[in-house]
Simulated scan of single mutants.
Amino acid sequence: MSLHDDAVLVLKEYEDQGELRQVYLEHLQAHPDGMWKACADGHITASALVVDPERERVLLTLHRKLRMWLQMGGHCEPADTTLAQAALREATEESGIAGLTLLPGGPARLDRHHTPCAWHLDVQYAAVAPPGSVEMISEESLDLRWFGYGEVADVADGSVVRLLEATRARL
């Protein structure tokens, strides 16, 4: 199964955000290259909000280009076989934390937003860090920091707050 096929399957099984989910599915139907950064009309991206083992804080990255506190995530790559694997890869690369575990049940939510490269149709997951893990800043970040749930709205935009709410509902 291709990554494109996996994305269609994941989105068909996702039961929330029906109107936005349909936008994603129509995009993939119209764009065979809709998984890739090269698709100028927009592309599917994958991200994950990293939660600490005690489930009291989340790790956010101060994105180097956007200069915003965000969850870990980004573009799919040819080696990615599933959206979940792409989200886990991105979260691991950007957090420096090995052994992250995605919460079961598929994506936590969807978020469509415009970036300097194109529209991102982000499929957002949630991941839990293992006990004793230590984060490490990647080249894509200016900073990494753990924030208590109540602090997120003070530093991040509404999309991150909504992802946190969806994640907490699953925890």
Results as ranks from 00 to 15, higher is better:
Ser2Met: 09
His4Gln: 09
Asp6Asn: 12
Asp6Ala: 08
Asp6Arg: 09
Val8Lys: 12
Val8Phe: 07
Leu9Trp: 13
Leu9Val: 11
Leu9Pro: 07
Val10Gln: 15
Glu13Gly: 12
Glu13Leu: 14
Tyr14Asn: 13
Glu15Pro: 10
Glu15Lys: 14
Glu15Thr: 13
Glu15Gln: 14
Asp16Glu: 15
Asp16Gly: 09
Asp16Gln: 15
Asp16Tyr: 13
Gln17Pro: 08
Gly18Ser: 15
Gly18Asn: 14
Gly18Trp: 12
Glu19Asn: 13
Glu19Thr: 14
Leu20Pro: 08
Leu20Glu: 15
Gln22Cys: 12
Tyr24Phe: 14
Leu25Lys: 08
Leu25Met: 06
His27Pro: 05
His27Asp: 06
Leu28Thr: 08
Pro32Asn: 03
Met35Thr: 05
Met35Pro: 00
Met35Glu: 00
Lys37Leu: 10
Cys39Ala: 08
Ala40Tyr: 07
Ala40Thr: 09
Asp41Glu: 07
Asp41Leu: 06
His43Trp: 03
Thr45Trp: 02
Thr45Tyr: 03
Ser47Cys: 01
Ser47Trp: 02
Val50Ser: 02
Asp52Ile: 01
Arg55Tyr: 03
Val58Thr: 04
Val58Ser: 03
Val58Ile: 05
Leu60His: 02
Thr61Lys: 08
Leu62Gly: 01
His63Asp: 03
Lys65Gln: 11
Leu66Arg: 01
Met68Ser: 05
Met68Gln: 09
Leu70Trp: 04
Leu70Arg: 05
Gln71Trp: 06
Met72Pro: 00
Gly74Leu: 00
His75Leu: 02
Glu77Gln: 04
Thr81Asp: 03
Gln85Lys: 07
Ala86Phe: 01
Ala86Thr: 03
Ala87Pro: 00
Arg89Tyr: 00
Glu90Val: 00
Ala91Ser: 01
Thr92Gly: 01
Thr92Ser: 04
Glu93Lys: 02
Glu94Pro: 00
Gly96Val: 03
Gly96Ile: 02
Gly96Ala: 07
Gly96Asp: 06
Ala98Ile: 00
Ala98Tyr: 04
Gly99Phe: 08
Leu100Ile: 06
Thr101Met: 06
Thr101His: 09
Leu102His: 05
Leu103Met: 10
Pro107Leu: 09
Ala108Cys: 13
Arg109Glu: 10
Arg112Gln: 10
Arg112Met: 12
His114Asn: 09
His114Glu: 12
Thr115Ser: 05
Cys117Phe: 12
Cys117Asp: 12
Ala118Lys: 06
Trp119Leu: 06
Asp122Phe: 06
Gln124Glu: 11
Gln124Cys: 12
Tyr125Gly: 00
Ala126Glu: 08
Ala127Phe: 06
Val128Met: 05
Pro131His: 07
Ser133Met: 05
Ser133Ile: 04
Val134Ala: 09
Val134His: 11
Glu135Pro: 03
Met136Cys: 12
Met136Lys: 13
Ile137Met: 14
Ser138Gln: 07
Ser138Lys: 04
Ser141Ala: 15
Ser141Met: 09
Leu144Cys: 10
Leu144Ser: 11
Phe147Met: 15
Phe147Val: 14
Gly148Cys: 13
Tyr149Arg: 13
Gly150Leu: 11
Gly150Cys: 10
Glu151Pro: 14
Val152Ser: 13
Val152Phe: 13
Ala153Val: 11
Asp157Gly: 15
Gly158Ile: 13
Gly158Ala: 15
Gly158Glu: 15
Ser159Ala: 14
Val160Gln: 15
Val160Ser: 14
Val161Arg: 13
Arg162Ile: 10
Leu164Ala: 10
Leu164Asp: 11
Glu165Tyr: 07
Ala169Arg: 15
Ala169His: 14
Ala169Cys: 08
Arg170Trp: 10
